[in-house]
Design a protein around this nucleic acid. Structure first.
Lengths: 364, 364
DNA sequence: ATGAAAGCGCTAACAT
DNA sequence: ATGTTAGCGCTTTCAT
């Protein structure tokens, strides 16, 4: 084991003679050096051929149990790990799936998109290469060419919120995650916003609320239409008309810093003859805003008026007082679904819509 | 261009004859197929040797301008991208730096650790391989072996909050990001928590506040000691004694769901003879909690009592009403520094402490 | 059940 | 300024 630079030369000489590459640890501390050997070297030590070692590593059953055990022992001992580069090159398969996370930085829960995809990649023996990018910037180009250099077999493109995107078709299959393209050229996995709103509204009526007001997202947001329809349909299914109870409360266009118009709307609806008994918000951060605005008006959420929302945004939904009852977006499962489509292939334009789950706290 | 499965065979045959691999687009839509060729093929088309193509790609100046132009035209035309696998193999250099993001999922701003590192990696022509892991779970092992398979040259291990970790030394140099190890075996990049607290406290006294109360993080948190000292020292530098003005307000141990003890502490300090004029919180989510608690007591932050904090957590700090004045942690620069150390190498136990920046809103 | 030979696409080393 | 040769570590193909 190399101790210092002077002895390092000799030690390295020995290691090279053994066919090992000793990767020196940082600094100079005593440590178990990991030897990154080759299959040829393992074969030499096990007194078998290169190919037999390859068979053991690739779990080919056509190997004598004894030979296998001997080889496996040596592999375990040396900590050998097959070179991905050599494998890719010889087999002409990269096993690489790219994951482009576009602006996913800005929310926490959307990291579950990544976790879901990563878990499936590991289960299926694929290498997921993950990049945080911003569309239209250099970061996107860098990630693209890096994925091309690794011969990625498919690319998952994940957006920060459910939206339409325009991804130019390339040689590599794309799966759109939390987004879709108009042309239907690419497979897509999105939240079922209609179902989310329908289910939440159903629960709201079931619990006896009769005058909910929906502070919806901006009209430029895909989810707002789908949810608006879900809200109205669920009310109707419960025997009520709610189409007049919807307002657009996000004033900033998608992508810009969020600006809410909740104050004016709340003043209006709370000043009306038929006061609402519940405020349904288009997203948890709007609900946070509404908590503050209600506070200003001397109203306490969950006691004086119910509040519900969409996202289950960590940590906000749990930190609000009282805790926010909200529809969780199925990000983890969406990530899993996207990776599965990326690996197994998808039909052209195939779209998966995943259901959300009601998370109950105390605001409703 | 392959149109359907039946014609695909013939088209592919032609492509192979040309030395091209046509990667079929998903589905069946008409699209510009990207041809991933080889340097040999480009050389054949340019009527030069393989090596000259290699020289052009690697920006070797020893190439005739005319030859270079001819080759570059063909490269642009075919969209050729050199195979990373072949490069790694032949050059025996992976150019890969691993980034293990441990639980970084749980906060948004810490994504800047990743962005900073990624940007430097790109600037320096390195491949950063990013993994979201959870220490002690399978995800950590999977990421480790994947990085070993790619022969990563260094690994950055990023923690979710400033803490001590125990990373067993391996053959690959590690840089610890937002964490450190006791033994000093690894280089580390951390926020300068002492400076953060000192600077914020200095500003507080400078603005005329004289009775700040510091609701600090749990005593098991590294930052809490450093910040506590910064708070007391800055007060002293301003001519005041603040050591009696500190309380531990995070009740849950690190890693567990955050539980605050702010209500009891606020009741106590606000009931005392000498009422505080400012509440300094150990983190922004605590500040959010304090906003609610103050609201319950009929006090409005920024008007009746000032509030300040640490993190600049997006989007909470900006969404609170009034906006939270807080010390931003230097995550982006920390990410950059860690990647720089990972690429250039670091002295054993080298520790970088980066300064934070005061973000002014309206709570102070 | 095992092995030998070839070669994936590139770059290092050495010509010319 | 350009070309030739060899070989990185593995898997494929074919033989035994």
């Amino acid at each position: 084991m190399p101790q210092a630079s002077e002895e390092g030369g000799a030690a390295k000489g020995v290691a090279v003679a053994l066919g090992l590459v000793i990767v020196a640890p940082i600094g100079n501390c005593p440590t178990k050096a990991i030897a990154l050997s080759t299959q040829r070297e393992i074969a030499r030590r096990a007194k078998t051929s290169l190919k037999t070692v390859s068979r053991v590593i690739n779990r080919d059953p056509l190997v004598n149990a004894e030979t296998r055990a001997r080889i496996e022992a040596i592999i375990a001992e040396t900590g050998y790990e097959p070179s991905q580069a050599a494998r890719m090159m010889r087999s002409q398969r990269s096993n690489v799936i790219g994951f482009l996370a576009d602006g996913v930085a800005t929310t926490t829960s959307s990291i579950d998109l990544v976790r879901g995809a990563q878990d499936v990649a590991w289960e299926r023996g694929k290498q997921m290469m993950l990049f945080n990018i911003e569309r239209g910037t250099q970061s996107a180009d860098m990630a693209d060419s890096q994925l091309a250099a690794f011969r990625a077999e498919a690319i998952i493109y994940a957006a920060i919120f459910h939206q339409e995107v325009d991804i130019a078709p390339t040689g590599v299959p794309h799966v759109l995650l939390n987004c879709f393209d108009k042309s239907g050229r690419h497979a897509a996995v999105v939240p079922d916003d209609y179902q989310l709103a329908f289910e939440l509204t159903r629960i709201i009526y079931e619990r006896g609320y009769r005058r909910p007001v929906f502070l919806n997202l901006g009209t430029d947001i895909v989810a707002s239409h789908l949810r608006g329809k879900g809200f109205v349909d669920a009310a109707r299914a419960a025997g009520y008309e709610a189409s007049g109870r919807m307002h657009t409360a996000v004033l900033s266009p998608a992508g810009a810093p969020t600006k809410f118009g909740t104050r004016a709307i709340l003043a209006e609806v709370l000043g009306a003859d038929e006061k609402p008994d519940l405020i349904l918000c288009g997203q948890d951060i709007m609900a946070m805003n509404v908590y503050f605005e209600l506070g200003e008006l001397g109203l306490k959420p969950g006691r004086d008026i119910a509040v519900a929302s969409f996202d289950n945004l960590d940590p906000i939904a749990g930190l609000l007082q009282p805790g926010l009852s909200t529809m969780e977006l199925p990000y983890y499962d969406m990530g899993r679904a996207a990776m599965t489509l990326a690996i197994d292939g998808a039909k052209e334009g195939q779209t998966l819509r995943l259901k959300g789950k009601f998370i109950e706290r105390h605001s409703l």
